[in-house]
Amino acid sequence: MQLRIQNLLPSFFKKESALESEIWRKDLSFEKGELIKIVAPSGKGKSSLMNFLYGMRNDYNGTISYDDHDLRRFDREQLARYRKDYISIVFQDLRLFPNQSVFDNIEIKRQLNPFHTSEKIREMTARLGIEDKLGVMSSQCSYGEQQRVAIIRALMQPFDFLLLDEPFSHLDEANAERAMKLMLHEARLRSATIVFADLERIDFYPYTKLFHL
């Protein structure tokens, strides 16, 4: 699958503010298997970009297309299918079900289109050090733990694109590195592209393309 961005600019951005951007108002395409890093300070539209790419917001000018299909023209069912089969995301604000257990939060995503068996949930949570939290309500977990739950949840489905919106904001470096390794491994399994937006570069992400937003 190919992701193409053409002349993209949030409708609430002025054209002049995008002059120095390597993403806004540019014509870019990303192929399967690439590791994309997008770096920008706060307020430059990282989350907006991720939301646009995931089809959650349409307040932009320009075009986003997957395999030449204009994302803006997707109906609700098509969008649901893409999110289930082709695009996965780790939200900056995590978006877990607060009254569900860690296991249920991950299982809800896994059962939708299982790339892994439910045994894999235990394996991954063990790998990221939250195995003992599986039965705990997610609202009772720390932000760092919740962030790891959100990461594992995103890895339960098949995908061609994995969108990461500041996925390590609540993690220490050691935990972040472990999580990154897991995501890289999972992306390789699917020959998928990672689009990773963050405040700064990190050493343990071997990006193939770097963009300043």
Binding site: Y54, Y82, R83, K84, F97, K109, L112
Partner: peptide, 14 residues
Amino acid sequence: ESLKLLLELGYSPG
């Protein structure tokens, strides 16, 4: 909120 998140996760509205 839950419904919104389910849709965001890829659950079909139908």
